[in-house]
């Protein structure tokens, strides 16, 4: 892969309208917790945005509101480039990968990946090719007939990613997808996601609390602070692509990680003063 081809993408995105745009979004839960305060955020097509912040700062809440899985208390979520369907959700599909694999244990891997298409009324035979293609992309082509319990944690997570990809979504939202995995599996899946993002021209919003993961993956990092949850820093990352093992051991990556880490420390420190 030439880095020139990749370098084009962020440049191209600046001319376009955002995929999703959050304006002054706040969320107060019924118990009074202000989980998110006045968040304004534009996600541009082709971006890889990481939401980074300490535990409980409202990252999941923000992601769920973007996916319209929860109502914002105030503010609006807008999808400027998508048609809005009758239920007030963007017609162009969203792929969502939860923190847990969230598979149906009574369905095979194939059946689980088929689900989004089935819900859209597509027949199994018509979907077979797309499902198998999605499974091949995550390297699980041979496991179509297996049940989730027969898979390892990392494999389940990959099924979950295949399910999110099978609808060819305009945007992929991932909520700490690899938080529960070991370092090696995590690095491998990071590389997989990066490759997918790159090959399929995806837009990704990736929630994490790992500085290193954010620094490795992102084209932009949003650092959030807690109490109340809010955007503290919005930093574009212009480290070159492709990012691989070489990048992981480079001086550039180390410096970037330090910079992101400082930003995160700053966000946490600010919170401490406010509380």
């Amino acid at each position: 892969m030439s880095s020139a081809a990749v370098a084009e993408r962020p440049a191209a995105s600046t001319r376009q309208r955002p995929v999703v745009s959050a304006r002054n979004v706040s969320k107060r839960f019924s118990n009074g917790t202000l989980a998110l305060s006045d968040m304004t955020l534009d996600i541009m097509p082709g971006e890889f945005v990481s939401l980074l912040g300490p535990s409980g700062c409202g990252k999941s809440t923000a992601l769920r509101i973007i996916a319209s899985l929860g109502e914002a208390t105030t503010g609006t979520i807008d999808w400027p480039t998508s048609r809005i369907d009758s239920r007030g959700k963007p017609a162009s599909s969203i792929g969502f990968v939860f923190q847990e694999p969230t598979l149906m244990p009574w369905r095979t891997v194939f059946g689980n990946v088929y689900l989004p298409l089935r819900l859209k009324g597509q027949s199994k035979s018509a979907s077979r090719e797309r499902i198998m293609a999605a499974l091949e992309t995550v390297g699980l082509g041979d496991f179509a007939k297996a049940y989730p319990r027969e898979l390892s944690g990392g494999m389940k997570m990959r099924v979950s990613i295949a399910r999110a990809l099978v609808t060819e979504p305009a945007i992929l939202l991932m909520d700490e997808p690899f938080g529960a995995l070991d370092e090696i599996t995590r690095q491998k899946l990071n590389d997989d996601v990066l490759r997918l993002w790159h090959e399929a021209g995806l837009t990704v919003v990736f929630v994490t609390h790992s500085v290193y993961e954010a620094a490795y993956l992102s084209s932009r990092i949003i650092v959030m602070g807690s109490r109340p949850g809010r955007v503290v820093t919005d930093m574009p990352i212009d480290s070159p692509w492709p990012r691989d093992e070489g990048f992981r051991s480079s001086e550039d990556y180390a410096a970037l990680s330090r910079k992101v880490s400082d930003a995160l420390q700053h966000a946490i420190h600010q919170t401490g003063e406010a509380a």
Binding site: D85, L115, L119, K120
Partner: peptide, 22 residues
């Protein structure tokens, strides 16, 4: 599982589909 319910929600499942498939 609430996350599975969310998933069905996300993909615009009807009541009938959620009942029958989930």
């Amino acid at each position: 599982d609430h996350n599975l319910l969310n998933l069905f929600d996300l993909y615009g499942a009807s009541r009938m589909q959620t009942l029958w498939l989930l």
